[in-house]
Design a protein around this nucleic acid. Sequence first.
DNA 1: GCAAAAGTGTTCTCGGTACACCCATGC
DNA 2: GCATGGGTGTACCGAGAACACTTTTGC
Lengths: 230, 230
Amino acid sequence: MPFREDFLISAFSVDPVIFGFDKGTLKILLIKRNEDPFQSNWALPGELVFPNEDLDDAPLRVLKEATGLTDVFLEQVQAFGKVDRHPLGRVLTIAYYSLVNIHKVKPPKAAAFAEKVEWIDVDKIRELAFDHSEIVKACLKQLRLNLRIHPIGFELLPEKFTLTELQSLYEAVLQKQLDKRNFRKKILSMGILKDIKEYQKGVAHRPAKLYTFDAEKYELSVKEGFSFEM
Amino acid sequence: MPFREDFLISAFSVDPVIFGFDKGTLKILLIKRNEDPFQSNWALPGELVFPNEDLDDAPLRVLKEATGLTDVFLEQVQAFGKVDRHPLGRVLTIAYYSLVNIHKVKPPKAAAFAEKVEWIDVDKIRELAFDHSEIVKACLKQLRLNLRIHPIGFELLPEKFTLTELQSLYEAVLQKQLDKRNFRKKILSMGILKDIKEYQKGVAHRPAKLYTFDAEKYELSVKEGFSFEM
DNA sequence: GCAAAAGTGTTCTCGGTACACCCATGC
DNA sequence: GCATGGGTGTACCGAGAACACTTTTGC
């Protein structure tokens, strides 16, 4: 019974929610559509998956187009498949979220089907095209969960960062204040940060130590039973 | 650019991993295929999604067919979309896991495309058709994660259960021994079990108290900031 | 010298863990 | 009366939470 013609009139797309972090706020890369449906609405930079393309390669391709980056953190979140979610046909979409260092991203510029591309604060996002608001919500939820149990926050920061930056990232994503001393005690006690003996420069206050994430040490600790939790 | 013909030559399916629990072991409902591809291999009871069917309705339909049950716990897990994952065409599949009371399921019987339907112990499962082994693995991982942070274990038990049954369920899924006193202390202290003043009957030992899961009380506690964790 | 953020320790509380014996029933 | 699983309490330890002052730099 499978593979009758009418099962094949469908397509699938990927919709990546690309997170960036700047000046204490979490942002998402959105496009302003310049074609129907939803012309001049804000939307995720989603695209259809090519017929000969593995599903997981599609968001990487979109990420490359939108940000110029190739080596990014990417995780699948959920499929959205209401019959009428796309006005032009049956399009099932797979949501992904991605974490990028916002300063490495090429300045957003208009693409083929977008008149604008911009980083928007997550809590300033209003209605989006299609079911993209729902998708963003699901990805935010997933990000909040994963930030607490996996060392992924670093993906949003420059390679070298201060503990205060890291803390403010956690505060922005988890939406709550954290105690400075307890935060430092905890993250340092995990032994997954490398003190690189460098300091901030040119700041009008005591310069902070810089750290990098020590992925090797993390992997090693995991093998010995360590499990990250913030 | 979207909606060119060749994007539309594709289909999507759902593959539900249906978990049941009996005599201390976790089981999955599998079918033995009686048609190609993968004739007479074990597989998940997956089906294509109808063109006019919301994605989330499809696994419910399959569940109904396979088990006769309609009111079941169901959660989406992940999309699998390698180009060549299905030998007959481009079929993206969405994996779901479901928790059912194994004793409420009608005795498995052969269906249209299955010569056998059986409950198989999770740790006795060998190679499955398509990428179904990978799907089972992902669903197990998801189940293990969710069992620890959501009160879903009850879905696998009869409505009335003993604390020992509940504990053995946790032990089977999480694959580790738990301390009886600590387990009881913890689960009872959450206040989400209802002591229904009934006891086991006809057992050759001191009869155990029966409990039910108090969903109302759980919802209430959540509103007050309670979060389940085992 | 002042503004601004960096950095640092101790105390208390609570939840997690380890652990062993008596109880109620069927046969 | 014996075999079987049901049911219970206490002590210890470690992690989380609360909390305030000194240090270093630029201007």
